[in-house]
Amino acid sequence: MRLLISVIVAIVATNYLVALYFPERYPEKLPQAFATSRGSAGGTRDLILVGLGLRRLASDIAMIDLLVYYGTHEHAGHETGGRFAGDPSLTGRAPPGVLRRRAAGSEILGSYIDLLPLARRILGLDPYFRYATLYAAGALAFNEDRTRQAVDLLNEARLRDQKYWPYTLTLSSIAYKKINDFPELVRSLEPLIELPECPSMLKNISANIYWKIGRREDALRIYRGLRDFAPEDDYRSNARYKLELLGEK
């Protein structure tokens, strides 16, 4: 009996000390993730994965959900998805299970109204998933013209990840986009392009703008990079096509 009491005291004391000196990291974000995925196919999966201590894997799969959602047609005849034709891979219909809820208080809601909730779900599961934040913010701001939502998302990510300068640069480029200052926009995006976590979509947007404002060499440089290194087949073939149009074989 004495041993049993000693064991319980040792366990409680250790747990108490751990709770005192190692508080849970970013717990306040999780309700956001669960609230977003409630009622959808991913909700139960998120809960199970978090319960098994696999929060990062849950955010990875949530990101795949977002990619599948954003990579499919919402409406027939939707070809470009936005001003700079950032995503050339839009085919098919939205899969079952993705959210169809309208974001409260949002600005003009064009297509892909669940893009922000899906991105916030990822951010809730892993506030340091930088690729996901950059991808979603880029899609919202440059493809869907929902700059307010993109700014909100980036500011939310910056609350946790304050030192990550690409968020600040993306915010600047969104500001330049709002005033149609394209030379400044690409100048602010330029350092982002060099980063390994920079989504191909942002690179493609930069190349398109370089082309639009007459900076052919810069556009060629980025298209070559996309052709050789983009992980997505669509971006590679799109880059090849653009390079042909620009006169490079």
Binding site: I11, V12, N15, A19, R25, G53, R56, Y128
Partner: peptide
């Protein structure tokens, strides 16, 4: 209950790799 159960939140390296 949280004082009795093992605290696996402490084993956080795997969930914070990138950060």
């Amino acid at each position: 209950l949280s004082y009795i159960l093992p605290n696996f939140s402490l084993f956080g390296a795997v969930n914070n790799l990138e950060s």
